[in-house]
Design a binder for these strands. Structure first.
Length: 191
DNA sequence: AGTTCGATCGCCT
DNA sequence: GGCGATCGAACTG
């Protein structure tokens, strides 16, 4: 079993951490998946970031130390999971948008009854939190303490990393802060 | 205290 | 391709 990524991995510029998270593995209990799509949300000069107007009760984890989870409820329905980056005081994070399932697939189907194919289990930020059993109770969690971890399973660096505009936002729409493993079938959408 | 609206998903046509 | 679900945080006044 691989070790969790060290704190220092996350204590770097968010635009460096985001692509480096591709092909790392998100783990919760028996369930895990390879990260194939992420988006960076910066602490400055990013009007799409939840941190844009300074810390609030909801976004406090974004301004906390790196290597922690920031989980929030979107549209009153789905949870989105981020990993916090950069030193405490900087409101930055990386949103995990899609995974390629590795283990615990049967359990994922149990929590994602609408999924017909394996590639539909984790191909979106709300889908993957449901599939892995991550919710608001994990907000602020230290990734080095668990029960949620990001580990390096030595899967290597993707051959082709693509940068593109982020999905579903209305501000700063031109910033190319979405990173995908090009051509992976588990992406939230083609690009 | 009231209102707005969102880093989505799944079902409908 | 369009839209309703369903909640709470954040903003307005």
């Amino acid at each position: 079993m691989a070790e969790p990524l060290p704190r220092g991995f996350f204590d770097r510029p968010t635009l460096e951490v985001a692509p480096d998270l591709l092909n790392k593995v998100l783990v919760h209990g028996e369930r895990s998946g390879r990260i194939v799509e992420v988006e960076a949300y910066l602490g400055t000069d990013d009007e799409a970031s939840h941190s844009r107007n300074g810390p609030t009760p909801r976004t406090a984890p974004m301004f906390g130390p790196p290597g922690h989870l920031y989980v929030y409820l979107i549209y009153g329905v789905h949870h989105c999971a981020n990993v916090v980056t950069e030193p405490a005081g900087v409101g930055a994070a990386v949103l995990i948008r899609a995974l390629a399932p590795i283990s615990g697939v049967d359990a994922m189907y149990g929590d994602r009854p609408t999924a017909r194919r394996e590639r539909d289990l984790c191909n979106g930020p709300g889908k993957l939190t449901r599939a892995l059993g991550i919710d608001g109770g994990h907000d602020g969690l230290d990734l080095s303490a668990g029960p949620v971890f990001v580990v390096d399973d030595d899967l290597g660096v993707p051959d082709d990393i693509r940068r593109s505009p982020r999905i579903g936002i209305t501000r700063s729409v031109d910033l190319p802060y979405r990173y995908t493993v090009a051509g992976d079938p588990n992406l939230s959408r083609r690009s």
